[in-house]
Design a protein around this nucleic acid. Structure first.
Lengths: 219, 219
DNA sequence: CCTACCGATCGGTAGG
DNA sequence: CCTACCGATCGGTAGG
């Protein structure tokens, strides 16, 4: 009995978390009232406060659960792969696939994580750093040019840029699947990194190799 | 006299807009009170309401000015370039260079544009679409693979993903300049697009060419 | 009668 | 688990 009650409790809590994520994604964290969340979940505000001490705890638990899911899945993907290129592909595909049912959480992570007080941001930023580290290691192993000192960071962040931006334009049911876009990103990086590396790997200087597309005049 | 007064008025207005952008970027649109904005600008709240009828008008004017600046600069960059590759480089470099002094406005665009009522979003989304269109045209002209039916959109959005994400990691004064990263993105796309295109250009099917890094099992 | 501004306070709603 | 509330602060406006 206590078991089934605990299960109900967690089920309810997780469903409320997801509903809250959708509301935060639509109206922003501050723009969503506790009353709105309670109504949307079909519970009283008092019950909401039975699950969480305050509004901040909802945002924290939401992001914490989301990021821990991402870390676990990406770790598993990274471990299960054979060669480095396959590993990179697994990681990118896994991330895009997880976002399928966590679009709201993903948007809240981007827009509202920084609204938490620094102390509560800390463990969440640590999870983000773990994800970045796994991706970075995978890129360094799969892409020869990524081993260069100044290339790894911009390359890693470019990949996250492409992945984290996908929610702005990617629509389910179109001609392109998530796996297609994952493949697109991986191939872009594998085939383009060496040329791109030349743009940042050399020490900064005014003189540019002739024939390269560089707009020094503008800066 | 009337002229110089009008000039003061506009100077003051623009400086208040930028201050508001910084506050919105830090605490969110709803999380920033009119009192906070007025205090930060060193004016009374009544004066703030002399410049803008309500809080929404501040957000709208802020984003409207920002996007119009982007559109004007990108149009100019596009028109001034000679060959297609140079045009693409000019556009990407121009965007990253504009963000140097409009980081707050850029973040507000990403996080808070959608909080406006739909009718007020409309002209702002139209400006965004113009930017996307110019980038898309430049990519189609500079990158052979981008002429394929299903490649242009993901490629365009990948570029915007990389550029729009840069504020999360790029720090001024590091070993890499904005121009360096602009070049990095352009070279990545120029060198990698053809291989990436293969991932989305072919009709969807379960059978994949052997040797390609595809994780069908995961999906 | 106008525009540019002030100190003070309105009605309504937020998180708790 | 609900209704009834609170102290505080919100966006916006009053008279002058």
């Amino acid at each position: 009995m206590a078991r089934s009650r605990a299960k109900d409790y967690d089920d309810k809590r997780l469903s409320m978390l997801h509903r809250a994520a959708e509301l935060f994604a639509a109206s922003g964290y501050v723009g969503t009232s506790m009353n709105t969340i309670a109504d949307a979940c079909g519970v009283s505000k008092a019950l909401l406060y039975h699950y969480y001490p305050d509004k901040e705890a909802i945002l924290f638990d939401l992001l914490s659960s989301h990021l821990e899911r991402l870390v676990a899945a990406v770790r598993k993907a990274s471990a299960s792969a054979g060669d480095p290129v396959e590993r990179l592909g697994m990681i990118v595909t896994t991330l895009l696939e997880l976002y399928r049912h966590a679009d709201a959480e993903h948007q809240v992570q981007i827009a509202s994580l920084r609204l938490l007080p620094e102390q509560k941001q800390q463990p969440l930023l640590a999870s983000e750093r773990i994800l970045v580290g796994i991706m970075s290691d995978a890129l360094a192993a799969a892409v020869p040019a990524a081993k260069q000192k100044r290339v790894l960071k911009p390359l890693t962040m470019s990949v996250f840029g492409m992945l984290n931006w996908h929610y702005m334009w990617f629509r389910e049911g179109g001609p392109m699947t998530r796996a297609d876009y994952a493949d697109f990103v991986v191939q872009l990086v594998l085939a383009g990194a060496e040329e791109a590396a030349a743009a940042v790997a050399r020490p900064r200087s005014k003189a540019k190799p002739a024939g390269r597309s560089r707009q020094a005049a503008l800066l």
